[in-house]
Write a protein that binds this DNA or RNA. Structure first.
Lengths: 254, 254
DNA sequence: TATAGTTGTCTATAACAATAGATGAATTTG
DNA sequence: CAAATTCATCTATTGTTATAGACAACTATA
């Protein structure tokens, strides 16, 4: 028989009438409990009635939360037996001076891939121009990409490049599925992270679709600048990570 | 006359029946628009009817979103004139090897303060013991604190210390409102950040109250270890930042 | 095999969220 | 001043969310 996992003491009340449905708040807390180890990987969740009591809601509300997590693949419910934790642990993504997607995930996943969603040459807005050291309105190449690990989408990035210096970047990325490889084809053999700023917000509908998330999901946002060895900015990017699947590790010194 | 700010083209549909109320999704997008500069600081928001049309919802739903943002202090509505952006820019919090709350915010806010919510000596769980290099079950001092900038709560931290080595830390913190100062009273004149891991999630009810957030708000979570100059772990902490008010800046090199 | 424990499904009711339309109140514009 | 614009408030209706209770289906165990 499987051991039932006992949860921690504090029964924090849910927020009612807050614009976020109770079942979603409970789903968040169960997911969080799994990430923190309160609910063990592969272990059995407490029965629905016990969860309902702990969260101070009706059993049917808990069922809504469980249904959502089953849908996501986080839980697996078996009639008569119980509900079990299926979730894979979070991926750790290192933020440092040397930051590359696939190198970053080595050892954590079997295979990584980048997919080009869209590309366009557009005039730079002031933020982009400032980041890349160009005049406002200069032509920049914008790439919309999704990066996947073992077939599951992990992040969605929008990147901007000097359209003149990096003409053909789009094609190179589409072929290789890697920014590093695409840079290499443009004569950039090495590059470094100049700055990274982290924030978080709810994913909008487009991002939900691209990252296969359910509505209300949270994304970690990094806004970063990469520079070449001479210190010239070559890429400005905003990357959205599914907060349920990824944690960002700040690499100190380096 | 104030110029009405035109918003970007893409009218992304809201997600209905998703567990997140439409008014909250819209509030999130307006907040995001302010952060991204789509809606200018101090500028006027498009009128309610225009916003309703853009988001594909009823005017009353937009009003719900605006009411929530007015409540938060992000917007200010004036009958007959329009709705205006009030928001203060996000505080930038630097994550690096030398990370201290008040030094970090210097130049961004006038005054910083730490407030002790609770303290207790408890047996270390496995995560805490591992982080601090103690045996599981060893006595650790747990401090629950809130840090404020100009009177507004910015972060809420739970910190763990070796209860023997740092006896009296609680009192020292309560008096000084600063971890750095409290360390100094325990003979630690300098300390460094060993590791920082960033994630994000919804704030639970306790945190909402402590950070004066409205329900459904997102927090950035940093889990960090500080060490003394000899490289011994002296503090393990989990800090929650209001994602609407703070962005984390990864300080490269150092 | 009988029983207890667990998830799955159904019905009904109440509370909250979203839409719709109408009207009032304050401000700006011509 | 008159008209247009904009936010504020009210009533009514519909759909979604949450609660409540009852019972069926399945599993494990004594």
């Amino acid at each position: 028989m499987t051991e039932t996992i006992e949860a921690p003491g504090s029964v924090t009340a849910m927020e009612r009438g807050s614009g976020v449905a109770l079942w979603r708040q409970i789903a968040d807390r169960i997911r969080q409990g799994i990430a923190e180890g309160t609910f063990e990987e592969g272990g059995r969740l407490p029965p629905e009635i016990a969860l309902a009591e702990r969260f101070g809601v009706n059993r049917h509300t808990v069922r809504g939360a469980i249904a959502a997590l089953v849908q996501e693949g986080v839980l697996r419910a078996e009639q008569g037996r119980g509900t079990f934790v299926q979730h894979a642990p979070r991926i750790s993504y290192a933020l440092g001076r040397y930051t590359r997607f696939s190198a970053n995930l080595q050892g954590q996943v079997r295979e990584t891939k980048g997919r080009l969603l869209a590309s366009a040459v557009v005039p730079a807005d002031s933020r982009t121009a400032g980041a890349l050291g160009l005049d406002a309105g200069a032509s920049v190449l914008r790439l919309e990409t999704v990066s996947e690990a073992d077939g599951h989408p992990v992040s969605r990035a929008t990147s901007w490049f000097d359209a003149i210096r990096f003409a053909g970047m789009e094609e190179a990325y589409a072929k290789t599925g890697s920014i590093t490889a695409a840079f290499a084809r443009c004569g950039i053999d090495d590059y470094m992270r100049r700055s990274t700023v982290v924030s978080a917000r709810h994913a909008d509908a487009t991002v939900l679709a691209d990252l296969s998330l359910s509505a209300g999901a949270i994304v970690l946002v990094t806004v970063a600048i990469n520079e070449d060895p001479e210190g010239r900015a070559i890429q400005f990017s905003e990357t959205l990570f599914a907060a349920d699947r990824v944690e960002l590790v700040v690499a100190e010194g380096l």
